[in-house]
């Protein structure tokens, strides 16, 4: 996803006079082509995240379309107030590319996990939040971000994620029906997609067919479209690699309180707490009840209800 996102940007938009890429001393090798072709469109900002964001805002004020690349804690947490005041409050269409969503970097440790980034990003008016599930969504997110007049935060895993969508083109701002089904809808975003797809395969072999819906754009969330897509199911299961109390599940909980939906909401996420256990991504997902097997169990239990 990360590579697709960056490659799309460079291939499609780097020739534009206003395109500019900043990196916080991260992504070695990723920008070599860009630097070679357009040495004046890339700047390594060093290990100084507050300056990187303020600087990006300043460049944006002068008319550049600025992308800031870093791992999520250093594009959103360390410099939260710069993102709030300099970019969002001033409504400058800077794009924050955050890599290492969820526990992508496991077992690097809690400092490098991003399991509460949506909670932070959601506090920021004007900010669009996109969490792609596959390289196709990442490509569409790259294209969307270039033309967007608003600040945008792109939440990416790292690399190697397979394509899930069969269609190449669709509206990234809307929930996407990936596979039709009945009784239960699995709603998801981001890198957990591989376990969701694996779970769907296992369920298929048991003749259980949940509806699969991805939500690439989490803010603003097109809840109306989601409701239409889910008007024939009894249960909606949100699966996300994020704290269960403050991600998409929580967004839907709030939305559901303000309206009437026909389904019951269930959230599968990472339990709210600092992670001290040392595991791989797979190990952490298993530990936190987020593996394909856990998703299968949950859907089978709900399907019988």
């Amino acid at each position: 996803m990360r590579n697709t996102f960056i490659e799309t940007l460079i291939k499609t938009h780097s020739s534009h006079k206003d395109f500019f890429m900043l990196s916080g001393d991260a992504g070695l090798g990723l920008f070599e082509g860009l630097q070679k072709q357009y040495p004046n469109k890339f700047k390594n900002m060093g290990i100084a995240e507050q300056n990187a964001i303020g600087f990006a805002a300043g460049m944006g004020l002068v008319g550049f379309k600025v992308y800031v690349y870093n791992i999520i804690p250093f594009v959103l947490y360390r410099c939260y107030e710069q993102v709030r005041n300099d970019i969002c409050y001033q409504n400058i269409p800077v794009v924050l590319i955050g890599v290492g969503s969820g526990v992508t970097y496991a077992p690097a440790g809690m400092t490098h996990y991003s399991v509460e980034d949506l909670a932070l990003a959601r506090t920021l008016p004007n900010l669009k939040i996109i969490s792609p599930i596959d390289p196709i969504e990442a490509r569409l997110a790259a294209e969307y971000s270039f033309t967007s007049d608003s600040p945008t935060y792109i939440r990416l895993a790292k690399r190697g994620e397979p394509n899930i969508h069969e269609r190449e083109k669709f509206d990234i701002t809307k929930p996407q029906l990936i596979k039709d089904g009945k009784e239960v809808a699995i709603v998801f975003h981001g890198s957990i997609a591989d376990d969701v797809m694996k779970a769907a395969e296992i369920l298929k072999s048991k003749n259980i067919h949940p509806k699969l819906i991805s939500i690439p754009m989490l803010q603003p969330l097109d809840f109306g479209s989601l409701c239409k897509m889910t008007d024939d199911v009894k249960h909606v299961v949100v699966v996300e690699e994020h704290f269960e109390n403050s991600g998409l599940g929580n967004i839907l909980m709030q939305a559901c309180m303000a309206t009437t939906v026909a389904w019951k909401l269930h959230v599968m996420g990472i339990p709210y707490g600092f992670i001290h256990a040392v595991h791989s991504i797979t190990g952490l997902r298993k530990r936190f009840g987020l593996s394909a097997e856990h998703i299968v169990d949950n859907v089978m239990r709900l399907e019988k209800k």
């Binding site: 300043g58 460049m59 550049f64």
Partner: peptide
Amino acid sequence: HGFNIGLGMAYA
């Protein structure tokens, strides 16, 4: 904040 925004503007 303003200082860093200004640096970005001057650079731009």
